[in-house]
Write a protein that binds this DNA or RNA. Structure first.
Length: 161
DNA sequence: GCCAACGTTGGC
DNA sequence: GCCAACGTTGGC
């Protein structure tokens, strides 16, 4: 049984279109610097898990694509790069703090906006809608996943998972 | 730009 | 281990 996740990306950094333009439409999910989000990648994710690709910190936040987890967790190299905004001086190569997974976009969708998500009676318990939620990676319950794919008009995509 | 909410840091 | 101060996230 696959798990499902919602992953936030800032379109100014890596939009769904940016990822689609990359080889295999796959992006290393770099820059996660929160232990809870890291642990989801490290302990929770399996290759093939479903991912809702979400745009945050932009004019119209919302779900803009369907993706999948495309690798296991591995060391995020930017933590050792002093020139990177994600540099972490406290992380040592012999004990890396931060990991990432590769994420492959399968399909760009319409923007299922945060406003629509909030207005949807079937999605009230979605973690990303909870007040004060700031986690960039959150688990998604199967019932929420199915509802969202339905709202996106992509029920056929269900078979990919 | 504002600010609520939350995570992290560091002094004690 | 407590908790105040600080930094960050992210919607609005």
């Amino acid at each position: 049984m696959p798990n499902y996740w919602l992953m936030k990306a800032e379109p100014a950094e890596a939009s769904v279109d940016d990822v689609l333009a990359m080889p295999n439409a796959t992006v290393p999910w770099t820059g996660v610097r929160n232990y809870q989000a890291r642990n989801f990648m490290l302990d929770g994710m399996q290759v093939g898990d479903g991912v809702l690709f979400y745009h945050s910190s932009c004019a119209e936040p919302g779900i803009v694509g369907i993706a999948r987890v495309a690798s296991g967790a591995y060391t995020d190299p930017t933590q050792f790069d002093a020139k990177s905004p994600y540099f972490d001086a406290a992380s040592k190569p012999e004990a890396p703090r931060w990991r990432l997974v590769d994420v492959q976009v399968l399909r760009k969708t319409r923007n299922l906006t945060l406003l629509e998500l909030r207005a949807d009676a079937d999605l009230q318990d979605l973690i990303v809608l909870k007040k004060g939620n700031r986690l960039s990676i959150t688990p998604v319950e199967p019932r929420h996943w199915h509802t969202i794919l339905q709202r996106l008009g992509s029920p056929g995509l269900q078979e990919a998972f």
